[in-house]
Design a protein around this nucleic acid. Structure first.
Length: 270
DNA sequence: AACGCGCCCTGTCCGC
DNA sequence: TGCGGACAGGGCGCGT
């Protein structure tokens, strides 16, 4: 579920809510969510102060001083702050009681998400293996164009591959390509310089706009307070098969690429 | 190396 | 009402 804007929204919220909070413990309800030994995970969290909450790619990163906790939300993961232990919630994966009496709750219906504790050195090594942050200054039209030269893949699944550029998932890949007026089926290496320039601009614009609207909620996504994202209403093509293109009124089409739905306007995106 | 595919898991919706 | 199949914001590991 969560792509860059959703994770960024959660991170900013959590940053204001739990920075300087002390983690009293970790009640691991679903052990398969934890990467590595569960007892080690719990031990390394207990009594630690949350120094900061940041984002790398689609992951939440909690700085705990000696270690870092990295959380990937998968499709249906949620990280929320509650005043109680959230007895009303189903599918709770991990409860983190805070010393001030509140609870940090990790909830995940499908359990595609995961949590792990790593050393700063392990974190840096992992971070270096990730693709580029699309909202960073290093992400330039020239960089995107150079990357695209090598791949015969269709640009839409190509864009979603996190080893190149991170944060763009199924929704924002379709949305960015529509804004850039590029067919999702076009081979990455066939993109012209003008197209990669438009795509660069479209990626940054759609991600920034989605952050401003606090993310997209289709079904499961919730922010750290349990609220929905408002970008759903701003979507131009995603989940709009058969509905008129907001630019030219041509019915939006749905195709499958790499087992995932792609939405596009056959008229705007040649 | 690059790429396509199946799979992990639970819930919902749609057609019959 | 029941049931099978398709589908859902991700990512890993496999084979070719």
């Amino acid at each position: 579920m969560p792509e860059l804007p959703e994770v960024e929204t959660i991170v900013r919220d959590l940053s204001g809510m739990v920075t300087e909070a002390v983690i009293a413990g970790a009640d691991v309800v679903k052990e398969d969510l934890i990467i590595g030994p569960v007892d080690d995970f719990v031990e390394r969290l207990q009594g630690r102060t949350i120094g900061s909450v940041t984002r790398r790619a689609k992951n939440l990163v909690f700085d705990l001083g000696a270690d870092r906790m990295v959380v990937n939300l998968g499709m249906t993961g949620r990280m929320m702050v509650r005043q109680d232990s959230a007895p009303d919630l189903t599918h709770i994966g991990v409860r983190f009681p805070l010393e001030d009496g509140r609870f940090l709750i990790y909830q995940d219906v499908r359990r595609f998400g995961n949590l792990r504790v790593v050393t700063p050195e392990e974190f840096d090594a992992w971070s270096e293996r990730q693709g580029m942050e699309p909202l960073s200054g290093d992400f330039t039209p020239a960089f995107l164009h150079r990357l695209s030269r090598h791949s015969r893949m269709a640009v839409k699944p190509w864009l979603m591959d996190q080893k190149r550029v991170v944060g763009v998932g199924n929704i924002y890949a379709s949305e960015a390509l529509h804004r850039a007026r590029i067919s999702p089926r076009k081979a990455a290496r066939r993109l012209t310089r003008k197209e990669t320039t438009r795509l660069h601009e479209a990626i940054q614009a759609v991600l920034q706009s989605a952050i401003d609207f606090r993310g997209t909620t289709l079904l499961d996504y919730r922010d750290a307070s349990g609220e929905r994202g408002a970008f759903s209403r701003e979507l131009r093509v995603y989940d709009r098969a058969g509905e008129p293109c907001r630019v030219c009124a041509t019915p939006i089409r749905r195709i499958v690429q790499g087992g995932r739905s792609t939405f596009y306007c056959p008229s705007c995106q040649k």
